[in-house]
Design a protein around this nucleic acid. Structure first.
Lengths: 225, 225
DNA sequence: TTCAAGATGTTGGAATTCCAACATCGTTGT
DNA sequence: ACAACGATGTTGGAATTCCAACATCTTGAA
């Protein structure tokens, strides 16, 4: 564990815990390091979850099997991210599987331990604050993508995404963090069809784009061309 | 406030707080009741959020405006549900608007107050537990829908949704909580096209359905017909 | 029981999207 | 400068979805 104390202390979750409190806190949380080889299954769907995982090193693939046994990719989790945080808090069974795609290290800890009524150290409160912020951050992130996918056409998905990017950058001109293929995956549409739709939107005067740079155009401005 | 103490105590969030602790706790949280007429705007996008809202009575419409000024419905919030919980925790600005669709009552309270390092009453810890569970529950709910929408065709969206319903009911035969129109909205597809796709799936041997009752069929069983 | 309204299924043409194939553009390494 | 490769844009036919219109089935009220 001591080998990874620095890494743990760099994570969003434990960053604000005073360095001297970290080791006893981890002990209180009944935490444990586990090492996974590339390809090794870390978590299988169907198990009741008690501990949260914090990825210290490596990358995990998060996926699920449907009723007909087909595998579906959900997300790729990288160093610094949590896993099973929701099931651990709510004490539910996970429907997801997790496999290491490269050699990985996970810190497992019992977050509910921190909520015990009789233990109220400062570092406990700090950890709870950080943990809640992580849950809230994830919620907002899921809401954002959900509102992009909750559209009936590629055009509307694009406009939804670009609208929020403009809001996020507080400007009608901005760079997006995706290339075309990544954007198509994010919106769950086919790359070349999306590319065609972007061209159509540009022709229609909604925007200008080149690579990952975008400029959105207001209808009122468009008519003044 | 006293008029609504019973309602508050019935909510998921405050249910587990001892009844005698409730009123002082609400005071500690700097809480406040607000009343909204039908049609009245409760929250406008762009404001930094400090308090969480708990809907005690009524219904709110949650929506956003895109860059081009078009309004998009996000969700309909009913009695017992929280609003702005994520922005309040993370201290961020909300991009959503909320309007009362009928006469409504909201309890506003400062959840961060509960996380102050110097205040550690039992009821505080209980509230934090309930609040975290709500965040986690919402996260799981968003993940569920997201994985249904993250498909390229109506057929795949349906199979994803039905798979998880089967898992949830722990049975290949179950009732879904939607009628056809609601299901189409949930999956962001057109009702009649979805209806046609369901018929096609039934013909192809994936399932049997009548109204909101479904029975999923395994390929292996299908071939034995 | 009958009727009316709502829910569901079906159909055909228009529009969109998928998909594969290929052209063009940009970047990187030599 | 040039070649190679990856990213992006374009195109056409197949497949899917939208959309409107209508038929049929269910449910609840009279």
């Amino acid at each position: 564990m001591t080998d990874y104390l620095k890494t743990i202390h760099k994570s969003k979750l434990f960053r604000k815990v005073p360095e001297t409190d970290l080791e006893p806190l981890l002990e209180q949380l009944d935490s444990q390091l586990k090492f996974y080889r590339a390809g090794q299954v870390a978590v299988t769907a169907g198990r009741r979850v008690r501990r949260v995982g914090l990825i210290l090193e490596g990358t995990l693939n998060m996926y699920e099997y449907d009723f007909w046994g087909r595998e579906h990719h959900i997300d790729t989790l990288k160093s610094g991210m949590l896993l099973l945080e929701n099931n651990a808090v709510s004490g539910t069974v996970t429907i997801h599987n997790y496999t290491a795609v490269e050699s990985s290290v996970i810190l497992w800890f019992n977050i509910r331990e921190i909520l015990r009524l009789d233990e109220t150290h400062t570092s406990n409160t700090i950890l709870i604050q950080s943990f809640m912020k992580e849950l809230a951050r994830k919620n907002l992130q899921l809401y954002t993508r959900l509102s992009d996918l909750d559209r009936m056409s590629t055009k509307e998905k694009l406009l939804s995404f670009l609208s929020k990017e403009a809001l996020r950058h507080n400007s009608d001109e901005f760079d997006i963090p995706f290339d075309r293929k990544q954007l198509a995956d994010y919106l769950s549409v086919e790359r070349s069809a999306m590319s065609a739709e972007l061209s159509a939107l540009a022709r229609a005067g909604y925007l200008e784009t080149r690579r990952n740079h975008f400029k959105l155009l207001k209808p009122s401005l468009r008519t003044e061309d």
